[in-house]
Amino acid sequence: MTALLLFLLALPLLCFVLQSCRKKHRAMPIPPGPPGLPFIGNLHQLLDNSTPHLYQWQLSKKYGPLMTLQLGFKLTLVVSSAKMAKEALKTHNLEFASRPLLLGQQKLSYNGLDVVFAPYNDYWREMRKICVVNLFNSKRVQSFHSIREVEVSRMINKIANHASASKLTNLSELTLSLTSAIICRIAFGKSYDDEGAEKSKFHSLLEEAESVLGSFFKSDHFPFMRWVDRLTGQSTRLEKFFKELDLFYQEIIDEHLDDESAKSGQEDITDVLLHLQKDGTLAIDIKFDHIKVVLMDIFIAGTETSVASLVWTMTELLKKLGAMKRAQEEVRNKLGKKGFADES
């Protein structure tokens, strides 16, 4: 009750600060945008909308391919055309290279130590170099070819079994199983595809990570309102999940350290990172936290993005049967040359 009274007393001052910020922005040439409410700006228009992407597309028809939204204390630029996107991402890429510092993303990335959420600077360039040269070079990617082939064959067999039994196939679940199996074997050296507690734990971590990264923290738009995130339990949830995820990464690292002397065979991404840590010749002093954030990028970004791409690709193919037929023929021809024509 005391906190609420203090907030109400401070509200006029906060509105004055926000108004001053808006006047400062008006002094600069900024794109137009829809009018917002005092203090919260346009936040209510996005949070109360189940399809914010369609809503912003509709706004772009009125305000143009470049428009601004006032999200609390954050002035946000919305780009809605290919031409303007090229200007932002190519012509003026240095100005737009860094991501905004959001609470959930910063926490899970160990304060921006990874490649995805680190600001564009010398550190980011060095981390990107480590990933490109040591982890994702063509030779390394090709070395995992057999893993991809085996897992894709398993998926095809599952689909064939469903078809034989006249069962519906849940494409989202199937592609999630495929991508998580491939990524886990490549990055962690183990698979969570089998039924049981480990698979359930893996998928629950993935779902919670996506939820936390997409959560709305009040302090992201109103820096003075961290107490609200604590009051609602969001900060506690974020801290608890971060500890679970950190323990998950640490267990993977410990398993690799324990098995290192006895291991003979294909290296996974964790092995490579541990060897780079011992090497000591890099511009960055690799710590366990650096290894964990690279695993996080692969674990979270690699899984969900691949699933979304596959599901939407299949959705578009189902709407265009001619393209679907050509794709089927191309796949069958390639599989036929390798002796897998029956599985297509």
Rank of each mutant, 00 (worst) to 15 (best):
A160T: 07
A160D: 11
N161P: 07
H162G: 13
H162K: 12
H162I: 02
H162D: 15
A163N: 12
A163W: 05
A163I: 06
S164D: 08
S164I: 03
A165E: 08
A165C: 10
S166C: 05
S166Q: 09
S166R: 10
S166L: 09
K167D: 08
K167V: 06
K167P: 05
K167Q: 05
K167H: 14
L168M: 08
L168D: 15
T169D: 13
T169F: 10
T169W: 14
N170L: 02
N170G: 07
N170E: 12
L171W: 06
L171E: 08
S172L: 03
S172T: 14
E173D: 06
E173H: 04
L174R: 13
L174S: 15
L174K: 10
L174C: 07
T175F: 14
T175Q: 05
S177M: 11
S177R: 00
L178M: 03
T179N: 11
S180A: 05
S180T: 03
A181P: 00
I182K: 00
I183D: 01
C184S: 13
C184E: 01
C184I: 06
R185Y: 02
R185Q: 09
R185A: 01
R185M: 14
I186W: 08
I186Q: 10
A187T: 01
F188Y: 15
F188T: 11
F188M: 11
G189F: 05
G189Y: 11
G189C: 08
G189I: 10
K190F: 01
K190N: 06
K190P: 13
S191N: 07
Y192E: 00
Y192S: 00
Y192V: 00
Y192C: 02
D193P: 05
D193Q: 09
D193L: 11
D193C: 14
D193F: 07
D194H: 03
D194G: 13
E195G: 12
E195S: 12
E195K: 15
E195N: 09
E195Y: 13
G196V: 15
A197F: 13
A197K: 12
E198Q: 10
E198F: 12
K199A: 04
K199Q: 03
S200I: 02
K201A: 15
K201W: 06
F202R: 02
F202G: 00
F202E: 02
F202D: 08
F202N: 03
F202Y: 05
F202M: 06
H203T: 10
H203R: 15
H203L: 12
S204F: 03
L205W: 06
L206S: 15
L206C: 14
E207M: 12
E207I: 08
E208M: 10
E208D: 12
A209P: 11
A209I: 03
A209W: 07
A209H: 11
E210Q: 15
E210P: 03
E210A: 09
S211D: 13
S211K: 10
V212F: 00
L213D: 03
L213K: 06
G214C: 11
G214Y: 08
F216T: 03
F216A: 01
K218Y: 12
K218M: 13
K218G: 10
K218F: 15
S219D: 05
S219K: 13
S219A: 12
D220V: 01
H221E: 04
H221D: 02
H221Y: 15
F222G: 01
F222E: 01
F222C: 11
F222N: 01
F224K: 13
F224G: 04
R226A: 08
R226W: 05
R226H: 07
W227Q: 00
